[in-house]
Design a protein around this nucleic acid. Structure first.
Lengths: 353, 353
DNA sequence: ATCCTTTCTGTATCCGTTTTCGGAAACTTT
DNA sequence: AAAGTTTCCGAAAACGGATACAGAAAGGAT
């Protein structure tokens, strides 16, 4: 209402101005606004009125400088358009807000250098927790520096959190939130095996990436448990993206008729791309080929994909919760491993002999 | 390396400590670290070494308090798991980083109250720009307060940006980034009409929501332009979500056989849900029913959907760019309207008589 | 009425930077 | 060698809010 057309660049009103208008000291204003102290109803009302009058907004930076925590939580993530990451980010943001924290976000595109830079940036912002999500290919230098960051953050009462990646080592003060990639992949592959499939194409091999390695591991273990040999020719390398799924399958089908009766896609995006590529070759799921994915995210419902469910949003929420809970006290930081379960839709049929 | 196991709660090192170690004044350290001033190579090296030695990290809050801009940009968004929003957010983050800014993020779930609260929060953080994305149902009180926020932000050299929603009024200092909903819907509907379809189901009517209204408008205009009557019975109400698309179509099909030969879904998520529902009733796209969507996002490639392309990420990038460019000078804030184009896939066939 | 609590409020300091202003040192030029 | 430029550096004052400490006011008990 008032200060309707302030000239460009005019400062915003300060606690001192509010104090002056209300006829009290800055200390009183501060206490009333932060709810530190039970002021008398009269002054309280006067101060609130004055603040309203001047459109007073506290300066979070000044507040944080004066000694209180920054009340912010940072998430550093591969990208925000990939469904898995988006859901984790959503969880982080929701929990952060629920705990009265602001959410800072930075993306890395999976580049360790950018990740390191982002963590530094978040450190400058005094984030109460820095949550790292997703895989990176970590060389020794990276691991050293990240350990150092973990130490530094912990030293100032903050916390580093690792989501969906391997811990940095035994004595590194970082919270870890993992999930059972190998177990989920084992269940998914077993599901195909128990339907009689023996030649199962694995889509999305990616050495060096924790998630990919874990899922490949589960796939192999399941085959072995069924007494089947491992065929390296069935393990196709590619990134966890729709286009890659399309590419991998297209390439395979262009080379000749399918030499498999089922597909285990390392995530649902890859499943979606492969599904499309097969459709273009007249191959229908599950009529001609059975398929299982991983994630229980779009596009799995669109194509009726049986897949492994992961509590994506929960991962983000837990990360925030644990970090904030644990930030104060010392001791061993928490390490949780979340379970998975199979979601049956309609992409698997018993193999016809 | 050093300070390997600091006790809990120890403060981080300050510019003063760096200055002391390097044997210079804090002013010199500040200048060297921010690159303000060409210090002599010798002192420069000494300061850098000292900073490294102490693992010095600047305190962004103190820096911002001391008078420089906060170097942060805020995005306030409906959710981050919906593909459209996720892409816009990605664009914002990317551009913010490119311009040396940190990205603050907050979600609202489409609730105007939460949006208002978030903007206030971002104002406390001194964000250099506050970018609002997506529709809300705005009552008068909301519009008043948002106008006031726009004024207040502008008064301190920041900027409010409105993405994909109607401007707040003529004299409100807010940057606006819109896109041509009506035009895109007109093109999409015309595409179906020119294939001979006359009974086109509109999925996703939502009075009060700018985007929904714009697209409905384009749909109607196209019908009228083709000399066809408007049939309210063909306009189905629902939210812009996959589940809603599924629900709307399921309900329709449960009520009886299709009384339409084509579908215009207001976005690709709805198209995906409807596609699935039809599949469950043995109705294939495009064999039995033609369909067009809007967004050119997942799951459109999965189901081969012809759809209207929107430069989602670009919207976010432009928002940041314009806000930052314009933040300094006064004058009329920019207002851009982005165009759309049809992406032809394989979900439309000529109507068989 | 006096003393003791309890409740409320004000003064002054500090948080960690940037930045203005002035001074010293190092070169140039004559 | 003196004067004039540059170039580099330091002292100190902000920035806006929280809080320790002390003091005033109000309320209760004697």
């Amino acid at each position: 209402m008032r200060r309707a057309s302030q000239p460009e660049g005019s400062r915003r009103s300060t606690i001192r101005e509010v104090a002056a208008l209300a006829g009290v000291s800055v200390a009183t204003v501060s206490r009333i606004l932060t709810g530190t102290y039970p002021a008398s109803p009269a002054t309280r009302a006067r101060v609130l009125r004055a603040a309203e009058e001047l459109d007073y907004v506290a300066n979070a930076h000044a507040r944080s400088l004066a000694g209180t925590a920054s009340r912010s939580v940072a998430i550093v993530i591969n990208s925000v358009i990939s469904p898995h990451y988006a859901h984790v980010a959503q969880g982080v943001e929701a929990q952060a807000t629920a705990e009265g924290r602001l959410c800072l976000i930075g993306t890395t595109g999976g580049d360790p250098k950018r990740e390191l830079a982002m963590v530094k940036h978040m450190r400058e912002q005094n984030a109460e927790a820095v949550i790292l999500v997703g895989n990176v290919v970590a060389d020794d230098d990276y691991r050293d520096r990240m350990r150092q960051y973990a130490q530094a953050l912990s030293a100032v009462g903050s916390r580093l959190v690792l989501c969906g990646r391997r811990p940095l080592g035994p004595d590194v003060p970082a919270v870890v939130v993992e999930y059972d990639n190998a177990g989920g992949a084992f269940a998914a592959t077993s599901h195909l095996l128990s339907a009689g499939h023996e030649r199962i194409l694995f889509l999305g091999r990616r050495p060096g990436y924790t998630t990919a390695e874990g899922r490949l591991d589960g796939y192999r273990k399941a085959l072995t448990a069924y007494g089947l040999p491992l065929d390296p020719g069935l393990e196709v390398e590619g990134m966890m993206e729709w286009n890659e799924g399309y590419r991998m399958m297209k390439q395979r089908l262009l080379a000749g008729p399918p030499d498999f009766t089922a597909v285990f896609a390392i995530n649902d995006l890859i499943a979606g791309g492969a599904h499309r590529a097969m459709a273009e070759h007249g191959i229908q799921v599950p009529r001609d080929v059975s398929m299982v994915g991983f994630d229980d995210l779009p596009p799995s419902p669109d194509i009726g994909l049986t897949t492994v469910h992961l509590p994506h949003e929960e991962i983000g929420r837990i990360a925030v919760r644990l970090a904030l809970e644990h930030a104060g006290q010392g001791g061993e930081p928490p390490h949780v491993v979340l379970g998975t379960h199979l979601v049956i839709r309609d992409s698997v049929r018993p193999r016809v002999q």
